[in-house]
Design a protein around this nucleic acid. Structure first.
Length: 329
DNA sequence: AATCCGGGGGT
DNA sequence: ACCCCAGGATT
């Protein structure tokens, strides 16, 4: 019998793994556990520091939820709840994470359902629907998950299934001839592995925008961290505006609403680049504005060397590196 | 039960 | 150009 895993470590790693490849999570997870080794230390950390530790993982609201939950658990004598109901009541913990904590850390025969298991179950049973297609459909996946979790030690079977999904029952080129389930897998028997799971068509959307890079004469930059913006909600970033065409037509009217005209020293279009966020693809042009004074501007002035200490989105990093590149020319 | 949420990376 | 990693929160 393996030693029980730390519920805190399971919670953090499983939440991180929800968004990112194992390779990307590894480094962030190790630093996290080094700097926040216990729930109590995490609960006492500043939100900014917590978000900084989440850098590069995306979906920052999950880090905020982790922080909220850490505070709740710390107040509860640092003990994790050991029932699904209580766990799922905590911010950021849903059916999957609760199942992972209960099975992997507390050795309860509780089920989990992640993308790996969905893929395996869809192939095993030729489920031609998605787990979120509807209540009944979702239930068939969870029923299957429960079947596996309750056969015997869920802390072994759950982990084995996830590993099987990652290494053997891959989404493309599944290694069926080395699969321990090949004899009972209907997709493998009928050689229809690639048809499952059925995937939902994603609607992509492109739009034009421009990023505003405002600087003073000492290489300080105006960055924003707006809680209301649709993207980059918990990150420092250069102001991003939708629809460059409208901007061009009204140039310089729009910019004057943002920057008092008398403070503008120099204004110029920078390079264009492309950036994708979730299903949106933004064709973006950089507009560089140098100002004489910093007055009446909303945002925070940050010196170039301090920007790296802040939480900067990959979008912001792209802009920064392009500025460095052009200044070298 | 259905819809919304939302970064980073790869082919 | 298109796809993948995903579960949780909200309505």
């Amino acid at each position: 019998m393996r030693i029980k895993r730390d519920p805190y470590a399971v919670w953090i790693s499983e939440t991180m793994l929800q968004q990112t490849q194992v390779s990307a999570v590894k480094e962030a997870f190790e630093k996290w556990m080094h700097d926040f080794p216990t729930v109590k230390i995490l609960a006492e950390a500043s939100e900014e520091n917590v978000l900084i530790h989440w850098q590069g993982l995306g979906y920052y609201s999950r880090a905020k939820n982790i922080h909220k939950t850490a505070k709740i658990i710390a107040q509860n004598g640092e003990n994790f709840p050991e029932t699904r109901k209580e766990l799922e009541a905590l911010p950021g913990i849903g059916a999957y994470t609760a199942g992972a904590i209960l099975s992997l850390a507390f050795h309860q025969n509780e089920s989990i359902l992640d993308g790996n298991l969905v893929r395996i179950f869809a192939r095993l049973n030729l489920f031609s629907f998605l787990p979120d297609a509807g209540k009944t459909e979702k239930k068939s996946f969870w029923d299957e998950a429960r079947k596996w979790a309750t056969i015997q030690n869920a802390f072994l079977t759950n982990e084995a299934l996830m590993e099987l999904g990652r290494k053997i029952c891959k989404k493309s080129n599944p290694d069926c001839k080395n699969c321990p389930l090949q004899k009972i897998c209907r997709a493998a028997i009928e050689n229809r592995q690639e048809e499952f799971p059925v995937k939902k068509k994603m609607q992509y959307e492109s739009w034009l925008g421009f990023a505003l890079v405002v600087s003073d004469s000492h290489e300080n930059f105006l960055l924003q961290n707006s809680p209301d913006s649709p993207f980059f909600k918990n990150q420092w970033t250069f102001p991003l505006f939708e629809n460059a065409d409208i901007f061009r037509e009204n140039f310089p009217g729009i910019i004057e609403n943002i920057i008092p005209p008398e403070t503008i020293q120099h204004i110029a279009w920078g390079k264009s680049f492309e950036h994708s966020i979730t299903r949106y693809k933004i064709r973006c042009r950089i507009l560089q504005v140098q100002v004489k004074s910093r007055k009446d501007l909303s945002g925070e002035w940050i010196s170039k060397k301090d920007i790296s200490k802040k939480i900067v989105s990959s979008f912001g990093k792209k802009i920064l590196s392009s500025l460095e590149f052009s200044s070298r020319i």
